[in-house]
Every structure is written in C-alpha cells, then in structure tokens.
Amino acid sequence: MLLDIRNLVQRFGTTTVLDGLTMHTSDVRALVLVGPSGGGKSTLLRILAGLDVPTAGNVAFDGEQLPRDEPSLQEYRRTVGTVFQAYNLFPHLTAMENLLLPLVHVHGLTDLEARARVREPLERFSLADHAHKRPAELSGGQKQRIAILRALVVQPKRLFLDEPTSALDPEMTAEVLDMIGELKDLGTQFVLVTHEMGFARGVADEVAFIGEGRVLAHGPPGEIIDRSDVPRVRSFFARILR
C-alpha cells in the first residue's frame, strides 16, 4: 500500500491532537506507528480506519482519497478491518457468531457460506476448539486472535491494529504477535500501532514516529529505532530500550 497523508489536522474542541501531519510511504505491506503516549497514534489510526473524520487534510491509500461523508465512510469501513486494544468482541455472542456476524449481515453471505469461510482460518490459528465459547470464556490472547480473524475473514484490503497486545501478559502477547507475523507472510497488509519495539523491528517495512501530533521521523525500522538523528526520537528509544 502507498499511504499519502497531507496536512492532517484533528481538533477536539480547543485541543489540537493532529497538527498538520504529513507522510508519504513507499509501497509497504506493514507500516508500524510508534511514539509517546498521547502523541496522536490512535487518533491517526481512527482516521485511517474511516471511524473519524479529520478537521482538515487529506489521506489517500494507493492514490484513492478517503471520503468524508458518512455513507461513503461506511462503505469504506466494509473494505478494511480494525482491531482495538480490547473489548473488540461482542460479549453476548460466541466466538463463532462474532466471526459470522459481519460476513452475514454486512457482506451478504449465507450462514453456510460464512461457516465454510471461517473454517480454514480457525484451524490454521488453532482456534477451532474455542469457536463455541463466549468471549468471557476465552483468554485475552484468544479474544484478540478471534478479533483479528473477524477483521480478516471479510478479506479486507488492509488491517488497522491499535495496540492489539498492550492489554495482554507476555505469553499472550507472543501468541498474538506470532499471528500478526504469520499474516504478514501470507500477504496481509496492515498499519499497526505498538509499543513492542522488538516485534516492530522485525515486522515493519517502515516505521513512523508520531509525537506532538506530527510525524517526527519516518523510515526503515533500523533507521528510526536504532539510529535516528532526531533528538526527540533518539531519547524516546534510549529510554524505552534501556
């Protein structure tokens, strides 16, 4: 995907969260957003995912402008997938019902077709045995992996993942990150917000450092994480990588 963001501004009341953010990626499969808390990563991701409309500015994926009106945005959201930090699944439905819901109600598959569609992915990610459970009966890692699957089985153009592991303990974090790594190998494109720098280094084609509502650094992971010449960026990684 080629992501082209120009002068993106997002204000909530009087606070300016995104302050003229501009970035042009090369043709990447995995773009990772990193940066300090409150820097605007989630705000940016919500705009990219078509959930919020920016105050000003333009976003284009592969040359296609994101719409600003709600009907077109809803259409757009049906072509992408989004996973949040937690509580993605609908607690009154089983894991299977969570997977079937968008297939049946948004993409018009019959129940039978939808079940056929999810069978293989459930097997591949060893989740078939848990499909009959409600979210309350699943571990945090299983919940997130089902949520990623739910976003994936509608065959979206790309995924948006906002800190999908930051509510998980290390073991579950590993199982979710493994899944994301495997997805990349299978050809899935995604924009990922994460604090897992080791993982970011391995999976990212490009890393963008978001701070103070802007892109403070952007490039290949090694360049940004290990040897950035931007002081703000260097001190951030010096602190979190010890």
Partner: peptide
C-alpha cells in the same frame, strides 16, 4: 462501552 459501538461501526454495520 463505547468500544462496542466502535467495533460495530468498524465491521461496517
């Protein structure tokens, strides 16, 4: 919770 509404919108409902 708001995340439920967000999730519902995110899958295109």
């Amino acid at each position: 919770p708001q995340t439920q509404r967000d999730s519902a919108r995110a899958i295109g409902l």
